[in-house]
């Protein structure tokens, strides 16, 4: 089915909301990249440029009380969950107003109040953690669901397999996304695995899997919804492989010389924002004026965020020593 037909199953308001988040994500990450090039950001900058539909799509399919355990190309999910551009830039700048108060950088942050488990650099580490989140829901008889995401490279780690196996054995309410963007740093898929599709890995765990066009917002959203519904109904985990392409280097220091230029050219035409705009126009849900309005709005929000972050204080050196342990009264016992 063509992308426009597919999108008919999604409410207009939901599509427009998700379109806004696509634009917000792109604009925010472009701005962060610019700050990096100006030398105002220390450390790595990992963006989801050209892959925004995946994290915006899955996060939009969840209930507020559900949980996400995202990876490093999921900025859209953070924003959908209510993290502000100001918090994100503050985090990148190591400011005290960032979600980790300067303890960690870039996309390594979370907030349980907003249902976000912080990404751990060690790829795939959060997949077993997500199964435990789901286990807690099952133990308490709650109808909540957790969605986690990993790159194609992350699926080679043992923790990926341990998580899928456990989730499947216990039919846990977890959805495993995979952002298959063809590369893991410089390593192409062909050197990462001997199977043609990442989703084949799910078969070993008797887990239903599907492949979706990761650049098609509505398709990702609908696949997420189906999997989330299954999980909520107690039918167990699902694996969703999103085919996409990493349009930059691994991080901003990497020129990605190892990627054939034609591949970039090919995928440029499939940009998720372009595709979403085409779909919205075809359905008569939006036009160029709408797109312009959204563009203006997100620019303002991102600029306000940058200003907030730049004006925020840095932590004091001695704050290094805080927070190694949780206090006795921190969690009710």
């Amino acid at each position: 089915m063509d992308a426009v037909e597919v999108a008919k199953d999604v409410k207009r308001a939901d599509l427009l909301q998700m379109y806004y988040y696509l634009r917000l994500t792109r604009t925010l990450e472009d701005r962060i990249t610019a700050l990096y090039r100006q030398g105002r950001i220390m450390g790595g900058v990992y963006t989801s440029s050209g892959m925004e539909a995946i994290s915006v799509g899955y996060a939009s399919a969840l209930r507020p009380d559900d949980i996400i355990a995202p990876f490093h190309r999921d900025m859209g999910a953070f924003l959908v969950r209510g993290i502000t551009p100001g918090e994100v830039v503050a985090q990148y700048l190591g400011k005290r107003t960032g979600p980790t108060r300067g303890k960690d950088g870039n996309v390594h942050f979370g907030d349980l109040k907003r249902g976000i488990i912080a990404f751990v650099s060690h790829l795939a580490d959060n997949l077993p953690v997500a199964t435990g989140v789901a286990l807690a829901f099952t133990l308490r008889g709650e109808s909540r669901v957790v969605v986690t995401n990993t790159g194609d490279g992350g699926t080679s780690r043992g923790d990926f397999h341990e998580a899928l196996n456990f989730a499947s054995v216990r039919k846990l309410p977890v959805v495993f996304f995979c952002n298959n963007n063809q590369y893991a740093y410089s390593t192409p898929l062909s050197l990462q695995m001997a199977i043609p599709n990442v989703v084949d890995r799910a078969k070993a765990y008797a887990m239903p899997g599907e492949i979706v066009d990761g650049n098609d917002l509505a398709a990702v959203y609908l696949a997420a919804r189906r999997a989330i519904d299954r999980a909520r109904a107690g039918e167990g985990p699902t694996f969703i492989e999103c085919k996409t392409m990493r349009m930059h280097g691994h991080s901003e220091h990497d020129s990605a010389k190892y990627v054939p230029r034609e591949l970039f050219e090919e995928w440029k035409k499939k940009d998720p924002i372009l595709k979403a705009e085409h779909m919205l126009k075809e359905l008569g849900y939006a036009d160029e004026t709408t797109f312009k309005e959204v563009e203006e709005r997100v620019k303002k929000e991102v600029e306000a965020g940058v200003e907030f972050a730049e004006q925020s204080p840095l932590p004091e050196g001695t704050e290094t020593l805080e927070g190694v342990f949780a206090a006795e009264d921190e969690v009710q016992s």
Partner: peptide, 21 residues
């Protein structure tokens, strides 16, 4: 009873603990 999967079940315990278990 878990699968033979130390990293997997310790990870799961972490997730459950963060959810208040």
């Amino acid at each position: 009873d878990t699968p033979l999967s130390e990293s997997g079940f310790v990870g799961a315990a972490i997730g459950a603990a963060m959810m208040g278990m």
